[in-house]
Design a binder for these strands. Structure first.
Lengths: 341, 341
DNA sequence: TGGTTCAAGGAATAGGTTTTCCTTCGTAAG
DNA sequence: CTTACGAAGGAAAACCTATTCCTTGAACCA
């Protein structure tokens, strides 16, 4: 009953003794290797079961020269973006029996170095670097000796593999949906222009409207903050400067919440008067809105999954190179379609 | 330049060779053990630095009989509650050079078993079980051979250590704050009564008002859902049934957002006419609200930190027993105090 | 019967580090 | 000059598993 590390867990030596065979034979029996009589295999298996034996992954890793672990380093404070990415990565890796060390640098380079050292001394087989912004960041280390994949961010060394959301495609999805609904006069309210993501979404939106012959241009985009407050403010601006506006695309769900707030106060109906599309498809935001918000989903879990797949390839010795985008997905709800709840 | 596991990392043997000493001596020099000349220590240190040597934690752990890792198993899908808990735990453990395997069971018992097996075969030194609901749950395994601490949840075996938020104390904080502001006629809108947390918060709130001689009783509590929609609905109910109400305490920030929505629509001013207090202090919710929402913070990071401390004690061989609560904290914002932004 | 082949399982090694014990050498005391 | 002691560092065991190579014994064929 004594807890703590002084308690010895059962090892393969115990199993071998109980089954009356040598250690090597026990190992072979448990792993299906070598030439053994069926009866012997069964005897070993039974002994292992009775003793609750589970092989020591450390010892196995020491021998194999790899640890079946990878590190995920995020600068997002385990935030809204990195969590789904990590979840996706973890499920893709877990299927391959690989476990994940998750590290949150809180966006300080010093912590990043510290975690990096830790992961290297734990001999991880690979590394995923996740971020909150898709802007290129300094490479985490060009010559670490372990494969690295970037997810939701990219390295300034443009040769390193990076998995990114298709922000422009997301903006395009929003525009095409609104056009299909017959909307013709648009507003686009989004975050600060220094964010590459904001610019890409706007570009995709503008391109799609231009192709449809609509006069919505880059000059019409309202850049501001990623906040509800900015959404509230910008909504008034749009109503004043764009008479007849019948659709607003927002660069984030939070901005959309603010816009929706103002529209209600000034007596605009959603979606009858104005259709709204958000970005992120962040559950508490889109479902809490009234009506629920149509939104572009970046499929962050897919990004994590794809990043994991690229990492597995690199570990196998077939590295990939450069950026790679994952398509977005539009989720239609009440803010563009009255029938949908 | 060849990546992958075939690339050998530098070992202590390389360091020893470069410094011209034996492996054992190198080890002693690096760890400050044994009797060595200062010059020798320096020579080894220099060699280690030049080669970028970091000891293989696996090999060290194999020898020490422990791995300097712990597992955190959560049923919260890396959600709003478990993330801060894990962050707190991780920072308390990281300071002790312990790394964390984070596992998300997505609330399925089968995955839980699977992760448990994985963690045990990785020989973690301990386990933290985190949850989304503070209701007692089945013990993860009474006789695992590793110490376990529950955080934000508890085991049905009431002897196992559990770190819980002081929900009743949180309700009490809200009541005392509103009373100090001179409010006298209350409403309390919260989640489903089957949630222990909802009942505890209500009890704390009622107790504190009773002690102040106010007539707010358990019968006045409005139980419903943890959603904005319920907040919108319940707000109308309160306005109808409680004339002169001047303060509403909500069991979650999301409910508070819904309430706030309705109040604006019917022309009630916050905080002048009605003061509002939420629960969770969930940033995007409380800061996005207009005015920003006063809220009770469960100090989830503290819960994680305390859980980690209890776990470290248990690993050291001094286990603790039974539930242990961590106090909440009230964060005052514009929804109760006009001066605060 | 003698030799060959094959099945079954044992012995030994490697992997990287820490620690215990042992050896060597120089120096001081007798 | 001999003995003893302390300092400095080397050798080897231990941790646990997987794998390679080797031994044993039996069956088979000529």
């Amino acid at each position: 009953m004594e807890p703590g590390p002084n308690l010895k867990r059962t090892t393969i030596r115990d199993v071998a003794a109980r089954a009356g065979v040598s250690i090597g034979t026990a190992s072979k029996a448990l792993n299906g290797q070598g030439k053994l009589r069926a009866a012997t295999r069964d005897r070993v298996a039974a002994a292992a079961r009775e003793l609750g034996f589970a092989p020591n992954v450390l010892a196995r890793g020491l021998l194999a020269g790899r640890t079946y672990t990878v590190g995920v380093i995020t600068t997002d404070s385990f935030g809204r973006f990195s969590i789904p990415v990590m979840l996706g990565a973890e499920s893709a890796l877990g299927a391959g029996q690989i476990s994940v060390f998750m590290c949150d640098t809180r966006d300080t380079p010093e912590r990043e170095r510290q975690y990096l050292d830790m992961l290297l001394s734990r001999r991880v087989d690979g590394l995923i670097v996740a971020g909150r912004r898709i802007e290129p960041r300094p490479s985490i280390g060009p010559t670490l000796g372990v494969p690295v994949v970037y997810a939701m961010t990219q390295s300034m060394d443009s040769d390193e593999p990076a998995i990114l959301p298709d922000d422009a495609g997301g903006g395009r999805l929003a525009a095409e949906h609104l056009l299909a609904l017959g909307r013709r006069r648009f507003g686009h309210i989004t975050g600060p222009p220094r964010f590459l993501a904001a610019r890409m979404r706007a570009r995709g939106f503008c391109d799609a409207t231009a192709e449809a012959g609509m006069p919505f241009t880059a000059n019409d985009v309202l850049y501001g903050e990623w906040s509800e407050a900015w959404g509230r403010e910008a909504a008034r601006l749009v109503m004043r400067t764009t008479p007849g506006v019948d659709a607003i695309f927002c660069g984030s769900d939070q901005i959309a919440r603010g816009v929706s707030d103002t529209l209600r106060v000034i007596g605009c109906r959603v979606p009858e008067d104005i259709a709204m599309v958000g970005f992120d498809n962040w559950s508490p935001m889109v479902l809490g809105a009234d009506p629920p918000l149509t939104s572009v989903d970046m499929c962050l879990e897919d990004i994590g999954r794809v990043a994991a797949e690229h990492l597995l390839l690199a570990i196998k010795g077939e590295p990939t190179h450069g950026p790679h985008t994952v398509p977005c997905r539009l989720v239609v709800r009440g803010s563009t379609s009255p029938e949908t709840p």
